[in-house]
Write a protein that binds this DNA or RNA. Sequence first.
DNA 1: CTTTGTGAACGGATTCACAGCT
DNA 2: AGCTGTGAATCCGTTCACAAAG
Lengths: 234, 234
Amino acid sequence: MAEGSKRQARKIPEATVARLPIYLRSLLEAAGDGLPTISSERLAELSGFNAAKVRKDLSYLGSYGTRGVGYDVEYLQYQMSRELGLTKDWHVVIAGLGNLGHALANYGGFGDRGFPVAALVDADPRVVGTDINGITVRHIDELDAIAAESQIDIGIIATPASAAQEVADRMIAAGVSSILNFAPTIVSVPAEVSLRKVDLAVELQILSFYQQRRGGAGSTSSLPPETAAAPPAG
Amino acid sequence: MAEGSKRQARKIPEATVARLPIYLRSLLEAAGDGLPTISSERLAELSGFNAAKVRKDLSYLGSYGTRGVGYDVEYLQYQMSRELGLTKDWHVVIAGLGNLGHALANYGGFGDRGFPVAALVDADPRVVGTDINGITVRHIDELDAIAAESQIDIGIIATPASAAQEVADRMIAAGVSSILNFAPTIVSVPAEVSLRKVDLAVELQILSFYQQRRGGAGSTSSLPPETAAAPPAG
DNA sequence: CTTTGTGAACGGATTCACAGCT
DNA sequence: AGCTGTGAATCCGTTCACAAAG
């Protein structure tokens, strides 16, 4: 470490970042084993990746392992939580309380894990005012006011596709800079906002592709049986 | 390997496959414009990618465009649907009818889009026998029988993490070869089974990482007092 | 010994840039 | 002229393989 700030300006590739939560969860499991340390081999097993990848990924966080021994479970857990920003709570607003939004709002183990639901919003006057899991649904026009009352960090869009972009825009205007979009549509956000999406229809269609390649049951199948398509999962 | 079937031995990279559903959806939107053709430029706009990527992706399907003109919307839509295996229905079973499973089962626009819900299963005797959206929940032990009654192509796991692997194993034993896992845990499947996962907690933690990097506010607090980070034990 | 940490090789995906067709 | 289709260049992520460290 040359001169300069102690704050590391480490790069950490996007692909690695996406795996950190899995490692963290695996460490939690590993902690149950009672062993104080864990090898890259074992961590690979628990997380479903391979040892080389695990070591490379962890090396981006720093040299937290001990050669010949492995990684200290507790310490690594701490470092990873810190790196992921899980040492503080991030407040979440859920927009759209149809089937999915409702399920998300009712899901308890949310606030437990550092992402407390700070507010629920919807555009439908029949939904506004109702109570879900102890939180009163407010009108989406109040977003600015809500954000002024309490910091909102993450917005979850669970509206119909037609409303998603508008809702995203309002969230961003209210100061939200991380968005998780469940609506089946493209949402555009400025570069300084993080956007991730979860799209059920897309997932099913991807599965459909490989299922068909495999000559999946059904009537129309007529591909060679030797079709050995690589599955999409890592 | 040599020559052989004239059936396409096209490769289609995984990354491209994952984008096809988005293109298809964009084409649906484009159809509303009334224009018979669409350029890679416009399709890029609608799908949120860039024109070079669109052209490269579409080239894997075949040369379906016309230079100087663009792609025929309807024809491309058809070819893409065919490639994705959307010309037939794929039957879905949903396992686990808690918050999420319930929401998924209630979501209508599922069967409409070629993925009819053929069965619902759960392990909880209090849930078994209840009716959701016109379908009676059956016990998970009946999976083999259910699969024998009607072809099941895709299994959706919406159980608690602790049950996910066991449920996946049972699905596979019953002949399901595509699985979409919503449970927050690693599920292992043999190479000939496709597995995709949707993990809310992981998504939130990824957002947390970038939010923190950005210097996002967030409320201080709450990690065990032990947070003083003991270096690796000696 | 064992297991990490990492340069180097590899392979896949994205972007560039232009040849080729309409 | 306009726009696709695609080799070539580039970027990014994964895997290899081994030196370094306990």
